[in-house]
Computed example of a mutant assay.
Amino acid sequence: MLFSLRAATLSLAGIVALVAPAVASEGWIADFDEAVKIAKAEKKDLFVDFTGSDWCGWCKKLDAEVFSHEQFLTAAKKSFVLVALDFPRDEAIKAKVPNPKRNDELSKKYNIEGFPTLLLMTADGEVFGQMGYMPGGPEAFVPAMDELVKTGKKELSDAKVLVEAFTQAEGDAKLAAWDKLAEGLEGAKEGSVAAKLYVASIRAAMEFDKDNKGGRKLRAVKLLLKSGNGDDATFAAGRELDPKNENGLLELCVKAQFNSVRDDDGAKAALTALDALAAAGPIKDKAVAFDLHVTAAYWCSQFLNDSDRAKKYAAKAKEIGTDDARALEFLDSILNG
């Protein structure tokens, strides 16, 4: 997700509103490896909460609104061993974390990029679902969790079958098996954890269809970019195949570049890419266009101290339009500042 006004303002609101450290409800295990042993012995799955108990506003809201309620605990414990992996900042709280080094290893293994991140996984560590904060308390959270257990495990199973069929096939049958894989990834829901199983096999088309004669290289690049699984080779291929954004690949490359920004230099490079995209032609996806420009305006106004450029991007974002009143208010604050 782009670091848009929406995400920024909500994050700040959560942090300001909740300043006291969150304490996990009883029944949570802080040692992942110990939880695995229990899950295997009890034939249960793992519900793993990656949290920042003393600083993460949304983690505190989730604990207060969902995890501390008996309705959630009763439902979750039927199928899961509950695991809380904490990443606190206060030294006194850090000292209570059983194995911070192991927590760091797990954070890297599962590519945790924000808190709270909730992973539903088997006792063998195979992830079949991912959740985060959602409003509505346990009344909303528990049904969503139950549904994810059903759909997530089925998607994982289906993906394994398709990947195995592609791996074993040869000749024309392998191309047909790849097409089935592509259909599977196209049909995966946004944020589907099982989608990651498709990636290596989908990427293979960039080699066996190097010249895009069968159209599979282009299809592969689009799928990888849309699913958030692009890498440098994918970005290069996208720019090569669609330099004028006629197929919407170039805008997906720029969106991925925005998502990867971690510092000022990265932001400047992403803004240059956005300018080149705008010069190539209209951005096809209105939502992508708006998010790119409002994010660009935010970066320029808050981090890069470039008010003229911020106003340029803000004006373009308003021209594209949105139903988000708070985003429009933010854009007006830049334009009138």
Rank of each mutant, 00 (worst) to 15 (best):
N247K: 15
N247D: 06
K222F: 09
G266Y: 07
N245W: 03
T234H: 06
L224M: 12
E240W: 04
A256R: 01
L250V: 10
T234I: 12
K226E: 13
D211G: 08
A269P: 04
K226R: 11
K213R: 13
K217G: 06
R216P: 08
A269W: 09
A237Y: 07
V221L: 07
L223P: 08
L241M: 03
R216A: 12
G230S: 12
V221M: 06
G248I: 08
V221R: 08
G215S: 03
Q257K: 14
D242K: 00
F235M: 15
N229H: 15
P243S: 02
V261W: 05
R216Q: 15
A233Q: 06
K222S: 15
R203F: 07
N259H: 01
N247V: 02
F235N: 06
E246M: 12
P243C: 02
L223N: 08
R219L: 11
P243M: 05
V221E: 09
D232F: 05
F208V: 08
L224T: 01
L223G: 14
K268C: 02
A236Q: 09
E240C: 10
A236S: 09
S227L: 04
T234P: 01
K255F: 10
D264S: 15
K268Y: 03
D265N: 14
L249C: 11
K217V: 07
K210P: 03
G266A: 00
L223C: 14
V261Q: 04
A220Q: 13
D211Y: 01
N259Y: 01
A220D: 10
R203S: 12
T234L: 07
S260H: 10
K244S: 07
L225I: 06
